[in-house]
Structure formats: structure tokens, C-alpha cells
């Protein structure tokens, strides 16, 4: 079987192409296209050379993947240099990109913290159930498990640009559910939470503030990422016509 038509070669090419698409994003379009086309030529020439030298398709695929892995640090420094050029050419646009990245990172950290909290409470519930401190399958435990699953779905949606609005909106629910029911459940399971509830006067206010804060944070993120609605020329003309009719 020829290397060019083998499945292993196509898998390797597909993986390296995906990596290339990732590190060429937000780089000058022409420079990125040059890198992609040059790599496409390299893959082809590699396959032809592998066929001529009697290399098996699997070995050729391994070589291609190995070259990509070994070159990854250089790819990243190249990307950094290219983005620096873009920044120096258009600082305003680059500032917007950096703000966008900062917002994405903050939302991901907050969502991970909510999910982490849910998993922590679930672990405590499982350990307590094993230790026969609580009965299995209580309504609170099921609620916490559902909200943790919802938080995991929200986090997955947040990872993709297209779905992150939905992810941010979904995260509002587990933010409420996991903090409220999680603390309620830990009240009976954790000595620390029990002691804090009794000794700290503003405990309830603090937990409610956290719920409201997280809810507002994820709602704000959804509004920030909400797709822009562009006014079409038809809309504008209709509006102008209406205003014209009103003034008459």
C-alpha cells in the first residue's frame, strides 16, 4: 500500500494540520496561509520519499508526527514573534485580543472552580455514604450530582468559541445550586462548615453574595460574548422612514 493512500498517513497529516491551524490562529492571514501551504507540500514530499525509500506507512506517519512534536516549541515562538509584529502594527486590535483572552481565562477559572467545588462536595457525600453517616441517594445528593453534571457541560461549552455564550448562561444555574446545596450538605458532613455557620455572623450573607456574584459574573460574560446584531440597510431605511412619518 502506498504511503499517500494509507490511513495512518492521513491521520498523522490531519493531526499536524489541526496543530498548525491552532498555532496560526490570530496570525497575519497571508503568513498563516504560507505556513499551511508549505506544510501541505512537506507532507506530500515526505510521503513520496517514504514510498521511494521503502518506509512503511506507519513509520512515515510516526516520522511526520515526530517532526511536528519536536518542532512544537519553535512553532510557538514563531507564533509569538508573528503576533508581536501584529501588535506593533495595530496595537488597538491587539489590546482587544488581549482583553478577550483575559475574559476567557477568568470565566474558565471561575467555571472550573464551580465544577471543582461540586466534585469536592460529591466526594464528601460518597465518603460519608460509604462510612454510613448518611443514607445513599438523598434528594440533596442527587441535586448536587445534577448540578455538577450541568457545570461540567457548561465548562465544555465554554471551551469552544461558538458555544461559550450558552456555556456562560448554563454556569449560572450550577453557581447557585452547588454553592447553596453544597454548603447545606456540608453543614451536616463537615465540622469546619458547621462551626463556621454558627460562629461567623455574616456566613449566610457571604454565601448569598457568592451566589449572586457568580451569577452576575457568568451573565456578564454571556452578554460580553453575545453575537453582535448588525443593523441591515433595510432595517435602517425602515427606521428612518418611520421617523420621517412621525415628523410629518
Amino acid at each position: 500500500m502506498s504511503v499517500l493512500t494509507s490511513t495512518s498517513y492521513h491521520h498523522a497529516v490531519s493531526r499536524v494540520s489541526r496543530w498548525c491551524s491552532w498555532y496560526t490562529r490570530d496570525v497575519d492571514v497571508e503568513v498563516a496561509a504560507t505556513r499551511r501551504d508549505e506544510l501541505a507540500s512537506d507532507f506530500y514530499e515526505h510521503a513520496i520519499w517514504a514510498d521511494e525509500s521503502g518506509t512503511t506507512p506507519r513509520a512515515a506517519a510516526r516520522e511526520i508526527l515526530g517532526r511536528a512534536v519536536r518542532g512544537a516549541p519553535a512553532d510557538l515562538t514563531w507564533r509569538h514573534a508573528q503576533r508581536r509584529k501584529v501588535a506593533l502594527a495595530d496595537p488597538t486590535r491587539f489590546r482587544r485580543l488581549r482583553i478577550e483572552e483575559a475574559v476567557s481565562s477568568l470565566v474558565l477559572v471561575a467555571a472550573s472552580a464551580v465544577l471543582g467545588w461540586g466534585l469536592f462536595v460529591l466526594t464528601r457525600i460518597v465518603l460519608s455514604t460509604i462510612g454510613e453517616q448518611i443514607r445513599p441517594g438523598s434528594a440533596t445528593a442527587v441535586t448536587i450530582a445534577s448540578f455538577t453534571a450541568l457545570a461540567a457541560c457548561g465548562l465544555v461549552l465554554l471551551l469552544r468559541r461558538r458555544t461559550r455564550v450558552g456555556g456562560a448562561l448554563i454556569m449560572v444555574l450550577p453557581s447557585f445550586g452547588l454553592v447553596h446545596f453544597g454548603l447545606y450538605q456540608l453543614y451536616s458532613l463537615s465540622t469546619t462548615v458547621g462551626a463556621l455557620t454558627f460562629t461567623m455572623p455574616g456566613w449566610e450573607l457571604a454565601s448569598n453574595s457568592l451566589i449572586v456574584g457568580l451569577g452576575m459574573f457568568f451573565t456578564a460574560a454571556a452578554i460580553w460574548w453575545w453575537p453582535e446584531h448588525r443593523t441591515t440597510p433595510a432595517d435602517t431605511s425602515t427606521r428612518l422612514k418611520t421617523i420621517g412619518e412621525m415628523t410629518r
Binding site: R35, S41, D42, W49, E63, A68, R70, D75
Partner: peptide, 29 residues
């Protein structure tokens, strides 16, 4: 010359593995 021909030539000179994509094309650009 082109990228892969260069990688082959560099490899044949000292018997090393083919130069990685990142290193080669970054240096060329």
C-alpha cells in the same frame, strides 16, 4: 530548493533525523 528537499539533505549530511517542521520553516521564513 524547497523545505522537504532541504530537510532530506540536512539529514543525509550527518545521518540525523529529518529536521522538525517548526524549526525548519521558522528558520526559512
Amino acid at each position: 530548493f524547497y523545505g522537504f528537499a532541504l530537510a532530506k539533505h540536512l539529514s543525509s549530511r550527518d545521518g540525523s533525523a529529518l529536521t522538525s517542521h517548526g524549526t525548519l520553516y521558522k528558520a526559512l521564513s
